[in-house]
Design a protein around this nucleic acid. Sequence first.
RNA 1: CAGCAGGGAGGCUCUGCCGCUGCCCCGCAAGGGGGAGAGGAAAGUCCGGGCAACACAGAGCGCCGUCCUUCCUAACGGGAAGAUCUUCGAGAGGGGAUAGCCAGCGUAACAGAAAACAACCGCCACGAGGUUUCGGCCCCGGGGUAAGGGUGAAAAGGCGGGGUAAGAGCCCACCGCGGAUGUGGCGACACAUUCGGCCGUACGCCUGACGGGUUGCAAGACCAUGUAUACCGACGCUACAGGGCUGCUCGUCCGAUGUCGGGGGGUAGGUUGCUGACGAGCCGUGGAGGAGACUCCCGGCCUAGAUAAAUGGCAGAGACCCGAAAAGGAGCGAUCCGUUUCGGACACAGAACCCGGCUUAUACACCCUGCUGUGUU
Length: 127
Amino acid sequence: MTEFSLTKAERLSGEQRIARLFQRGKGGFVYPFRYVCLWGETESEAINSAVLISVSKRYHKRANRRNLLKRRIREAYRLHKHSLVESVRIRKKSLDIALIYTSKEIVPYKTTEDAVRKILEKILREP
RNA sequence: CAGCAGGGAGGCUCUGCCGCUGCCCCGCAAGGGGGAGAGGAAAGUCCGGGCAACACAGAGCGCCGUCCUUCCUAACGGGAAGAUCUUCGAGAGGGGAUAGCCAGCGUAACAGAAAACAACCGCCACGAGGUUUCGGCCCCGGGGUAAGGGUGAAAAGGCGGGGUAAGAGCCCACCGCGGAUGUGGCGACACAUUCGGCCGUACGCCUGACGGGUUGCAAGACCAUGUAUACCGACGCUACAGGGCUGCUCGUCCGAUGUCGGGGGGUAGGUUGCUGACGAGCCGUGGAGGAGACUCCCGGCCUAGAUAAAUGGCAGAGACCCGAAAAGGAGCGAUCCGUUUCGGACACAGAACCCGGCUUAUACACCCUGCUGUGUU
């Protein structure tokens, strides 16, 4: 598996796991995102970071707009996640992240990419 | 050439880097390779079907839906070709309505005398009175009048002539309406002849014919996880508490606790349903029939299957289109054509069980037919 891939194992799913993330996770804001993350303990050597991407139906009513935004965010995460994932694996922890798009506008890809990179750096410095 | 009307068909292409989801092949595995991967509306969820679960003797009533005719279709509230009326447009054409209701009943705001057994004003003759310049005028009474006025969405068939005190289908011609007969058409209807002087229109209740069981893939099936126990049955136990018949006793009946089975309640998942290699399937400047929707035959094809939800992101190039400029070509001319440079624009929109429709959104550009206007000859 190469360092730029993003398979189903790295995408957050399951009602309980998501509920736990939003109840106990710590959050922050970097325009145009609100983010929530939760660290956990694990013994496994496998990749243990998972991401969830959300775009509000309230601000973006057309499905094709939401798809475009989610795809861009996913690309940005995919291209910049490798240092984070490696660090999480070495520390033998697990990490769940939620990225929530909060702008009514469709911002350019460059803005999205910068914001995602900043969030990842912030999360790494936190624990 | 410009502006329209109707119908049809389309709705970007290529390259590089990095990815996503099924499938097939190789490999013990890590992984590697191959090939596939959004729409004309995938949308709204408005109709009709398939499929699934539950319900269901049969019949009637009720409820809901549909409603000009003939066809098409698996079916439809859909489509095709027509009919009548109406409305918009200069026209090509577009929109809307249409079962019956003189079986019966109800409603018709505001305005208006009156909204269906119509006299407010007006008009008319007659009778009583007043006045008079003897022409009349004023006033009262009971009558006759739907020609005129005003109101209204709608005012008692229209219009002309005769007729009359004034009027009136009272009479007549034409038109309209209704009945009958004939002709044409499968039919809705149309046309002709003839008879009838003919007191409305809209909507609803109502009447008739036809159709409709309910819920939707979060349907449903299976696997795994696995716990309080309403309730029911069987077995076991009649040892103790309790309750009913009864206030007590006897008697008798019920009965918690046990085991098994059923049953219902709850938690978070997976597989299947699921994508079709066989279907109301798709494609074809292929035949045949039909005015058309469509049907039959022939040939070829197998065409997304996700699930916090794949089908992409970024960068670059190029078509097509629009605007401006340059030199050139065609034509008498309005104008057109290709070339180069610069700038701009590239829509609506994302499958969620599957089909057939309807409705709505849509930059740009193409083809066919038709209409109106204009230029040159």
